[in-house]
Amino acid sequence: MVEPNDADNLTPELEGRLDDLFDEHNASLPDNGDRDGSKFYPLAELKNLILSIDWEITDEVLEKLLQQIQDLNMTYGHDKTVLSFLQILDALGGYIKKNRAKAHPKTFKTLNSVFASLDKVVLSKDMAETEKKKILSTEMNQYNELRIQIAQSKAEKKKNKLKSQEPEITAPESFFQTPNAAKGDFPNTEQGLVPSTEALAKAVEEIKQYIHAEIEALKTEIKSLL
């Protein structure tokens, strides 16, 4: 205790009363429930924020999450295992912030799983370092799997996009063989090079179907973007 020089003098009556009332030696011990020192919970704020993300993804929550991870980086600067967990959480938080609701569905499961493991490592004081590293390795593998899945999903989306942009050649080949009118070089109908009325009607029908299919594909793509 640091005493100031000008501390007030207390009346003996008051001092005596307070000593009697707050005699810690004869008082009942506090519950051994959730408030003893070993149960101090340094990850409480991080847990709140991760639970908040489960509920609703907002800029405020995500910024607080990343800030909290930075704070914990300072707190656990001496613990490489904890720092690795925090690094994964930071990467996941950054990815969610960038992609929001479009983030890969497995991201949130991985985020919760990494936090649960970090929680276990931080709270288990007696856990051996090898055990901690084993847990970290499991989470690291899950995280890497997720990264692969995200990359695959991106590649697939890109492929589908390209595919949907390419027109399907459904019209008859003859339709694309346009006569060179400028030169007056009309081929003979009898040679079968100028389409007949029947063939032309069939081609128009096919074009209609093609345009309809294109419109449907575009609708689906627009829906997926919303």
């Binding site: 205790m1 640091v2 100031p4 020089n5 007030d8 003098n9 008051l14 307070l18 707050f22 020192g37």
Partner: peptide, 29 residues
């Protein structure tokens, strides 16, 4: 330059000393 205590509220270290001190100072004031 006030009275100060190093404490642990979860363990109870100096919690009661702080309380007794503030009550004494306040009642005296």
């Amino acid at each position: 330059k006030k009275t100060s205590f190093a404490s642990s509220a979860v363990l109870g270290t100096n919690v009661i000393e702080t309380l007794k001190r503030i009550i004494s100072l306040t009642v005296t004031s």
